[in-house]
Simulated assay, not measured.
Amino acid sequence: MGCDGGTIPKRHELVKGPKKVEQVDKNAALVARWNYCAISQRPLRKPIVACELGRLYNKDVVIEYLLDTSPEKCIIETAAHIKNLKDVKELNLTDNPAWKGDKVNTKGDKYEDLQGAAFICPVVGLEMNGRQKFCYLRDCGCVFSERAMKEIKTEVCHKCGKPFKEDDVILLNGNKEEIADLQRKMEERKLKAKLLKKAKKSKATESCVKSARTEEIAGSSTQKPKETKVATDKMLNGFSSSSGAANAQLSSSSSTSATGGKAEKPGKPVSGITKRSFTDTGEKSEAYKSIFTSHSSAKRLREEKPNWITHTAYYY
């Protein structure tokens, strides 16, 4: 075994036991979650957005992540539920006046306060460093500490005055149980919004069908009086023309009887009698039909056809 130089090995050097679980530094974990983006792991810079699970992101990083549609895109677990910019909300943060920035201790020769934060609660004044729970409102994006929301209970935002409900309050950087609860609420909201959209679409189609039916009914009702009016006008015109013709016949008969059976030639046509051409009657005589080559008289029988006559255009 060696033991050169008179060294005596100990038991833990000879027997390997179970490995110790590495414990994560709590201060480092808080700094990583509250001061760095959940996608790029870069320091948070305004504008800062948060998802419905309470994670913090840089807005430009989220836009780059959504625009990347290449097959080589790495899907990050912390942003897998983000499909568009509607899934995140831009936060309305309150700056900390005592914050000097992270570039003060560039040499590393000064004390660095890990509990300092760039943002605070506008109501209580607590620093947003992860030691205290913070939340934001889903409608307006204003950020407050959980202590302020519990101590000053109200249905209106403390900063902008916009009304909100209890379901609109989303906790930032919660634990596993709180994130699971937020995910369940997020899925319920999405399902409810989807059903509401379908209901609105069906109502819109029903209203369009009803309006079309009412227009058809209104159009038919307006057309019926017009049709009846035209029919009555035609009847009245026909009655007037027939009565005019009858009066003309009576006047002609009376005039012939008065002149001894000889009818006088009228200078003007009697009103009510219209002249129509021979072609407008629809009945044509045989003499008129015989003018055309399609008439039976223009076609001769085979017995009447001499063999030596050449065919002309009027043969058939």
Rank of each mutant, 00 (worst) to 15 (best):
P9R: 08
V24C: 03
Y36L: 12
A50R: 00
L56N: 01
D68S: 03
T69I: 14
T69L: 06
T69K: 02
P71T: 10
C74M: 07
I75N: 08
T78M: 09
H81C: 03
I82R: 02
V88K: 00
E90P: 03
N92R: 12
L93I: 15
K100P: 01
D102Y: 05
D109F: 15
D109I: 14
Q115H: 15
F119T: 04
P122W: 11
G125R: 00
E127M: 01
M128E: 02
Q132A: 07
Q132H: 15
Q132E: 03
L137F: 15
C140H: 03
A148C: 03
K150C: 04
I152W: 01
G161Q: 11
P163H: 09
F164V: 07
L172A: 11
N173I: 09
D181R: 13
Q183L: 13
K185V: 09
M186D: 12
M186L: 10
R189N: 14
L191P: 00
L195T: 06
L196Q: 12
L196H: 08
A199N: 13
K201L: 13
A204F: 01
E206A: 06
C208L: 11
C208V: 01
V209G: 00
V209H: 13
K210N: 07
A212K: 14
A212H: 11
I217P: 01
G219W: 02
T222Q: 02
K226S: 12
T228Q: 03
T228N: 05
K229T: 10
A231W: 08
A231P: 02
D233A: 15
D233T: 07
F239A: 14
S242M: 06
S257F: 08
A258Y: 11
T259V: 09
K265Y: 00
G267C: 08
K268Y: 07
I273W: 00
K275A: 14
E283I: 15
S285Y: 09
S285V: 08
K289V: 06
S296I: 15
S297W: 00
S297K: 06
R300Y: 03
T312D: 08
A313D: 11
Y314G: 01
Y315L: 09
